[in-house]
Simulated assay, not measured.
Amino acid sequence: MTVFTIVPSAPPQPGRPVRDRPVGRQGALLEQLARELNVPAETFLDEPPDGDAGELFALVRHWLAIGDSQARRRVLSLARQEAERSGYSEVA
């Protein structure tokens, strides 16, 4: 179950809806991902862009919704298999 809380936010940017930030483990993971990508965490809560970026946002949202570690390992395993079918190989 995803839990959201209402917190004061920065003034909205024109044309962008304001969403509540996730809290707890999901919020912490989202914040870490946003820092790594050098974007605001709210980026992942806004309407997703078109194309590959939108699909990536959807994947992040779905990943955060999976609370079971075994389920996440299954999803990651499937992603690895599909990447390998597409010619990707991990470098050790």
Rank of each mutant, 00 (worst) to 15 (best):
residue 1 M to S: 15
residue 1 M to V: 10
residue 6 I to Q: 14
residue 6 I to Y: 14
residue 7 V to C: 02
residue 7 V to I: 10
residue 7 V to L: 09
residue 8 P to A: 15
residue 9 S to H: 12
residue 9 S to K: 12
residue 10 A to L: 14
residue 10 A to N: 14
residue 11 P to M: 10
residue 11 P to F: 12
residue 11 P to I: 00
residue 12 P to S: 11
residue 13 Q to K: 14
residue 14 P to S: 14
residue 15 G to S: 11
residue 17 P to I: 04
residue 17 P to W: 06
residue 21 R to Q: 04
residue 22 P to V: 05
residue 22 P to S: 00
residue 25 R to V: 02
residue 25 R to P: 01
residue 30 L to W: 12
residue 31 E to V: 07
residue 33 L to T: 09
residue 33 L to S: 03
residue 34 A to T: 11
residue 36 E to Y: 06
residue 36 E to L: 05
residue 38 N to F: 07
residue 38 N to Q: 10
residue 38 N to Y: 06
residue 39 V to P: 13
residue 39 V to L: 14
residue 39 V to H: 08
residue 40 P to L: 01
residue 41 A to G: 09
residue 44 F to K: 13
residue 45 L to T: 10
residue 46 D to S: 10
residue 48 P to G: 09
residue 50 D to F: 05
residue 50 D to M: 01
residue 51 G to P: 00
residue 52 D to K: 06
residue 52 D to F: 01
residue 54 G to P: 01
residue 56 L to E: 03
residue 56 L to W: 05
residue 57 F to C: 02
residue 57 F to G: 00
residue 57 F to S: 03
residue 60 V to K: 04
residue 61 R to N: 10
residue 61 R to W: 05
residue 64 L to Q: 10
residue 64 L to M: 14
residue 64 L to G: 10
residue 66 I to W: 05
residue 67 G to Y: 07
residue 68 D to G: 09
residue 69 S to V: 14
residue 70 Q to G: 11
residue 72 R to N: 07
residue 74 R to P: 01
residue 75 V to K: 10
residue 76 L to Q: 13
residue 76 L to C: 12
residue 78 L to C: 02
residue 78 L to T: 04
residue 79 A to C: 12
residue 79 A to Q: 10
residue 80 R to C: 05
residue 80 R to Q: 08
residue 82 E to S: 08
residue 83 A to K: 06
residue 84 E to A: 11
residue 84 E to C: 09
residue 84 E to W: 01
residue 85 R to P: 00
residue 87 G to K: 11
residue 88 Y to H: 13
residue 90 E to Q: 02
residue 90 E to K: 08
residue 90 E to S: 03
residue 90 E to M: 03
residue 91 V to N: 15
residue 92 A to W: 05
